[in-house]
Simulated scan of single mutants.
Amino acid sequence: MPVHETHHGNPPHGRIEDKVAVITGAANGMGRATAERFAAEGARLVLADLDGEKLGAFVEEIGAGGSDVVGVRGDVSSEADVQFLMCEAVRHFGRIDILIANAGIIPEADLASATVDLWDHTMAVDGRGMFLSCKYAAAEMVKAGKGAIVCLSSISAFAGQKGQAVYGPAKFVASGLTKHLAIDLADKGVRVNAVAPGTIDTPAVAQLGKEGIEKVISMHPLGRMGKPEEVASAILFLASDEASFITGAVLPVDGGYLAQ
């Protein structure tokens, strides 16, 4: 599994200055926006994605901006790949301070059209992938007696929706894992929280088409989709010391969707 070149520089001071942050699913959407925000806040980054070509280009871009960053191509549903990712983080930077467990897929399927293979693949990526990422990152954090994990959940983990017979249950895993790991790791100095985005303007959502996008926008009281940068801001808060007394929380970033 190829590892892209590490770039060294002098990032600006920020709320997570010099923290080592592992971000999965970092080449697109909310993962990419989070990586950009973390770089601006002074973090040292370990970025992971299944799309090695896009990840490599992004790592070069972030590195050219002056951040310390390394990219690792891998599949979060593979235990070997996740172990390798965390080992690379420790090899390059000596520790892991923050994990953003973002990698996931968003299939649309109702019960009739959903196949067993689609269910298994979604649970492997969105469920097992998050479990593995948390498991092996937390093992390094426990050694240091501190750390912060932020998982990506969804409004689909709280509100029933048409066409989400597979994705919705997978995001229940994200929220449930967050709460149980928060208790399991609290006495070890590791905080575990999650964000639950509503409909965010990402390439995946763009595939819904004009009619589909208008429909989902109408379901959000603020009358628009969210921006990846807005989710990144919530993730940054939960990962930073500003949230030092917060664990087990699932923060909606949803334009009021769940308030209805």
Rank of each mutant, 00 (worst) to 15 (best):
A40L: 08
E61A: 09
M30H: 07
A103K: 03
G31M: 04
G129E: 11
A139C: 14
N102K: 03
P107T: 04
R44Q: 14
D18I: 04
F84Q: 04
G14Q: 02
V59N: 04
I98P: 12
L111P: 05
T122M: 09
V20L: 06
G129V: 09
G74P: 10
S133V: 13
L85Q: 07
G65Q: 07
M123L: 06
R37W: 13
D110A: 14
V90Y: 01
R91L: 11
G42L: 12
L118G: 14
R15M: 08
L111Q: 04
S78W: 08
E140L: 06
G25C: 06
E61T: 12
V125Q: 02
F131P: 06
I16C: 03
N102W: 15
V142P: 15
C134Y: 05
I16L: 05
S78Y: 09
F38P: 07
A80D: 08
G29H: 13
K19T: 10
A109L: 07
N28W: 10
L85R: 05
A139E: 11
A101H: 05
V70D: 00
V82R: 06
L132E: 08
A21C: 14
T115I: 08
D18R: 13
V82N: 04
C87R: 14
E140G: 11
A27V: 04
D75T: 01
D81L: 03
M86F: 14
A114T: 07
A124H: 01
L55M: 15
A112K: 08
F84L: 04
E61F: 09
I23T: 03
E53P: 02
F58S: 02
T34Q: 15
A101P: 10
V116H: 09
L132C: 09
M123T: 14
G127V: 08
V59A: 00
H92Y: 15
D97L: 08
M130K: 11
G29L: 09
V82T: 13
V116D: 04
R32M: 04
A48V: 06
A114Q: 04
V70G: 00
T115Q: 02
G74Q: 10
C134F: 03
G14N: 02
D126P: 10
A103I: 02
M86P: 10
V20T: 05
M123A: 07
S113M: 13
H92K: 14
G71R: 00
G25I: 12
D51G: 00
K19P: 13
F84I: 05
H13I: 11
E36L: 08
H121D: 10
M123R: 02
V142D: 01
T34H: 15
H13N: 11
D81M: 01
L99N: 12
A101T: 09
M86N: 05
G65D: 08
V116Q: 12
L111F: 12
F84Y: 06
T115L: 02
E61C: 01
R128F: 01
V46W: 07
A80L: 07
A40D: 07
E61M: 03
I105L: 11
S77Q: 07
V59T: 00
F38H: 13
M86G: 02
G29T: 06
I100C: 10
I106V: 14
D110M: 13
G129W: 15
G31D: 10
L132W: 08
D51L: 04
S77N: 05
N28G: 03
N28E: 15
E61Y: 14
T115Y: 00
I16G: 06
A40Q: 07
F131S: 00
D126V: 12
K19R: 11
E36R: 11
